[in-house]
Write a protein that binds this DNA or RNA. Structure first.
Length: 141
DNA sequence: GCCAACGTTGGC
DNA sequence: GCCAACGTTGGC
């Protein structure tokens, strides 16, 4: 089981929109960055991820699950670009802000802190537990 | 709205 | 293969 973080600007794709897709989920398309794509290639069904709102809210707002492994991105004919499908699992009761993450020494190595431009990132198990705790999930999913 | 950081493109 | 120019992202 691996953990990930998906970053999205709410004006283009928000957590609310993701939740409306329900259990069917949604293809995480539009990624045009090799590092992000390579991370998606590593994902397996059942892996979990944080849903992070960039720009305005800069907070982890939800938990998602990988529901389809990597496949061609339907929004382009360019065979280089692939993506996975994710579905919303639950809200994070208390969204965890970037400020809070930066202020927590346990999270100082998070990719989010050190490479803010990568849109699909790996998250360690320890980081997962800690962010879940901060978000008000006493038991990490 | 600004700007730093980063990734990509294209000329050589 | 290098590197300058350019475009985009995202925090502030």
């Amino acid at each position: 089981m691996a953990y990930w973080l998906f970053k999205s600007e709410p004006s283009s794709w928000s957590w609310e929109m993701q939740k409306k897709k329900g259990d069917k989920g949604q293809e995480w398309d539009g990624v045009r960055n090799y590092q992000a794509r390579n991370n998606m290639r590593e994902m397996k069904i059942g892996d979990l991820g944080f849903f992070y709102h960039s720009v305005k809210e800069t907070s982890v707002v939800g938990i998602v699950e990988i529901c389809a492994t990597v496949h061609p991105d339907s929004t382009t004919d360019d065979p280089r670009w692939e993506c996975v499908d994710i579905r919303a699992v639950r809200d994070v009761p208390k969204p965890v802000s970037l400020e809070d993450i930066k202020a927590n020494p346990k999270l100082k190595d998070m990719v989010l802190v050190n490479n803010s431009r990568l849109s699909v990132q790996p998250v360690s198990a320890a980081e997962w537990q800690e962010v879940c705790r901060m978000g008000g999930l006493d038991r990490a999913p």
